[in-house]
Design a protein around this nucleic acid. Structure first.
Lengths: 224, 224
DNA sequence: AATATTATTTAGCCTCGCCTAAAATTCTTA
DNA sequence: TAAGAATTTTAGGCGAGGCTAAATAATATT
């Protein structure tokens, strides 16, 4: 029962738990279901399987957390996913916001050597096209200055987009419409007291309104 | 019911029917089951589904054949499979006999544009690393001099290995042990009356014995 | 032509992953 | 602190895709 490898569905759950674990120690059934587009009852069922495999610890009615071996699997999946995204963008010429779904499928391809060879072929990249870090084969994340969301920026400050929190297709398309992409430099001109939306001036002179949901999901680095 | 896309399992069946169709007009349940490592009863079940989708025609107790739309799917799968094999060998540096299982997974990744971009990226190759033809996007096969199996060669003739019939892992490993690969030049020194095995001299001076099963699965081109 | 052999299909069962509805538990708030 | 609200788990069911064993049809043999 130990030693097995996660099925695609199990992998999706592990990866979801991994991502949500960055906000809280114990991940709730509801949040996980929302994150992977499933239902709470289905998640509970899968968690039982994952627990039998030794990949998660489950405190009934309280939440789920990855064990050390679960974390290793999750990191391997994240690594595979992000390397494929680099391949799709840099080699095949896809746009950075088109690649998530394809990488979601490619990350499940299993075979000794595949990911390591891909990594070497791509030049051992540290960041994916969305600006997210790619863990090394041994599971270490490249370090970077602390994540700040655009919603935390004071009015008047200038910053660069370095990454984004969610990678759902709708969000990526939304950003595309706003002409937002990693590397964009901008200034916060104003923020509404009413709904938190921010008026933003891009370096090229264009002005856009970012909703509070948009700002919260954008990571930035302040320009001094 | 029409217009849908085959699941991985359905795709495997379609591809199997396609390959076996090269030997006979109607493919038998038993042969297909053996070819895709399944059971006759399971194949019958899947054939019913494929028939509902309009991808195969089934004459009960007589066999199954692809419809035009089934053939299109099969060719698309073959194309995707062989392009990924080229990628794995030429870009990632895998050996030609290691890539079949990985390509078997990669071929199922679906997404608009993916295969076309991969094709362009690889330089629109016509032949995969096993020497098999890669169909074009519109489903045409590159043409080549007629396939001849090594078992048809008269004693004394010299030839080059251009491809192989089966791509089962055991066969590929067997060939590896015999140092056989596409491009190998050799001469048939002798053929046993008893079991059909052939004594073969390679260009580099090495001598091997090829069983009749080995010879039958090797395609060659005669050197005048 | 009748029977034995082989191939194929049907019948019935299983697991996995998903669902909804109902029950159980925890959290919130009056 | 007790009732109501929200969350989570359990119970029960479904479809896809696989299996074995039994029944049926086709083929080969005498």
């Amino acid at each position: 029962m130990m030693q097995s490898i996660p099925t695609p569905s199990q992998a999706d759950h592990l990866k979801g738990i991994y991502h949500l674990s960055q906000d809280a120690d114990w991940v709730s059934t509801n949040d996980l279901a929302a994150h992977i587009q499933s239902r709470p009852a289905s998640v509970t069922g899968m968690i039982k399987t994952l627990q039998l495999q030794g990949w998660v610890a489950h405190r009934a009615y309280h939440g789920v957390a990855l064990t050390e071996s679960g974390r290793r699997w999750a990191l391997e999946l994240v690594r595979s996913h992000r390397l494929w995204e680099v391949f799709l963008c840099e080699r095949l010429g896809f746009d950075w916001h088109e690649v998530h779904d394809l990488a979601e499928q490619l990350e499940h391809v299993r075979g000794r050597e595949l990911v390591e060879r891909l990594d070497r072929y791509l030049g051992n990249p540290c960041w994916d096209p969305h600006g997210d870090p790619i863990p090394s084969a041994s599971g270490e994340m490249p370090t970077r200055v602390r994540w700040i969301s655009a919603a935390e920026l004071p009015v008047g400050s200038r910053a660069t987009v370095t990454g984004m929190h969610t990678v759902h297709d709708t969000f990526l398309r939304h950003l595309d419409a706003l002409l937002v992409r990693p590397g964009l430099r901008f200034e916060v001109l104003n923020r509404s007291e009413f709904d938190g939306s921010a008026e933003v001036l891009y370096q090229d002179g264009k002005k856009f309104i970012w909703s509070v949901q948009t700002s919260e999901n954008l990571y930035v680095q302040i320009i001094e």
